[in-house]
Amino acid sequence: MSVSNEPLLRELRVLELGHFIAAPFCTRVLADLGADVIKVEPPGGDPVRGWGMQANGQSIWWSVHGRNKRCVTLDVRKPEGREIVLDLVKRCDVVVENFRPGQLEKWGLGPDQLAEARPGIVLVRISGYGQTGPDAHKSGFGVIGEAKGGLRYLGGYPKNVTDLPPPRAGVSLGDSVAGLYGAVGALAAVLDQRSTGAKEARVIDVALGEAVLSLLEGALPEYGLTGKIREPMGSAINTAAPTNAYPCKDGTWLLIAANSDPLFAALCRVMGKPGLADDPRFKDNRGRVEHMAELDAIIAEWTRTLTPREALEQLEAANIPATKIYTIADVASDQQFRARHMV
């Protein structure tokens, strides 16, 4: 069977009326899949052009943020800019924006105007709180969505460990997750429009906080049914063990996820403690979670005698999921990332 090397979304054209992260992330995903993305930037350019480290006077981050896109500078607040946008819309399947709700309408670029220019247009709207509800008017960034959606709390330190605030992830998870939902929604809406021939605008309404909330597994129904709030666990989780970060002798950290009975038994053999799997405290997951601190101390005692490479040779030979916690330098040199052209 022959496989085409043509980009999957080669027949999709997208107009980006976005800035900062969420909407540009959404369109970047579509562009990477072959969509023709036209990015509208304000006079002076997207703010991200000036963010982060610079090389040759250019933002390095921008090379990721703006890749595979065609860019045009327009002042959409002016009538002539609005008319050019509507003319571009006539040739597009999707419009993606992440302004505060109501801003497009103020510019005369709301769903009705877009659908008049291009019947059946798909409009992806990414905002802090969504297009409706009592908080819709509020501004929000990814970090606000992460806090509002509960992730920042869960990513904090266990109680009584420190009085430091819950740390942020180091990247804009809220924006990126919302952008992914926007891309999925756009493709679903395009499929529907092409199958039905609908002429009205299809609006995909994505809220940063809701996108993050969707990642919280069973935390919400757990609270609804039991009244219990899932608490921060640091580098562990309160549902399975052992799955944690353990110190190595070179000061780096090794993540081991041996949280099933067969994997735990294999880990015990690797550590030279096969009898540990039959210890009444650790013989099943419930017991291992209950005695997590004792178990983690035993595993850490073993990992402290080894470098990550030495530990991983033994763990991988036993098919136990494990990895060193990577820095970006580790990522850049990783053979798997390189083999799959991620780096």
Rank of each mutant, 00 (worst) to 15 (best):
D278K: 05
P24Y: 01
K228R: 13
T305V: 11
G150V: 01
L180D: 03
T132S: 09
L187K: 03
F25C: 03
V37M: 07
R194C: 13
K273R: 06
A258M: 12
A35N: 02
C26P: 00
Q193A: 14
G156P: 05
Y157W: 12
R152I: 13
S235A: 15
A297V: 01
C248A: 13
A219Q: 10
I38Q: 02
Q335P: 05
L267G: 02
L255N: 04
N238A: 15
P280G: 07
R125V: 04
V64S: 10
F25Y: 06
Q314V: 07
M1K: 01
E6W: 01
R269F: 02
N244P: 15
M53K: 08
Q193H: 06
K106V: 00
A198L: 13
Y246V: 03
I237M: 05
N56L: 15
A31W: 00
V124C: 04
M233H: 14
S176N: 13
C268Q: 06
K324D: 00
A186M: 02
K78F: 05
L104P: 12
Q131E: 14
G18Q: 08
A318H: 12
G155T: 06
L123E: 01
N319Y: 14
P166Q: 13
A201L: 02
V184I: 08
A147P: 15
T323I: 13
F141H: 14
R168P: 12
V72S: 09
G45L: 10
G150D: 11
K90V: 12
I60E: 15
L164Y: 14
Q193F: 07
G185H: 06
V289R: 12
G110V: 08
D192M: 15
D261S: 15
I38H: 03
G224Q: 15
T323S: 12
G179C: 08
L263C: 06
R338I: 02
V289S: 04
R28F: 02
V203Y: 04
S235C: 10
L216F: 05
E200R: 11
P280A: 11
E105M: 07
K324A: 06
G44S: 11
F282T: 09
K78M: 08
Y223V: 11
N319V: 10
T307M: 03
E290D: 01
E294R: 01
I60R: 04
G45T: 05
Q131N: 02
K69Y: 09
E97P: 09
Q58R: 12
R230E: 11
V331W: 04
T73K: 02
D75T: 00
H65L: 10
R125A: 07
F282D: 06
S139T: 02
P7C: 12
N68F: 05
L216S: 09
C92S: 13
Y246T: 03
L114E: 13
P43F: 03
L254D: 00
E210V: 01
V270E: 04
G18M: 04
Q314E: 04
H65G: 07
S260F: 06
D278E: 03
R168E: 15
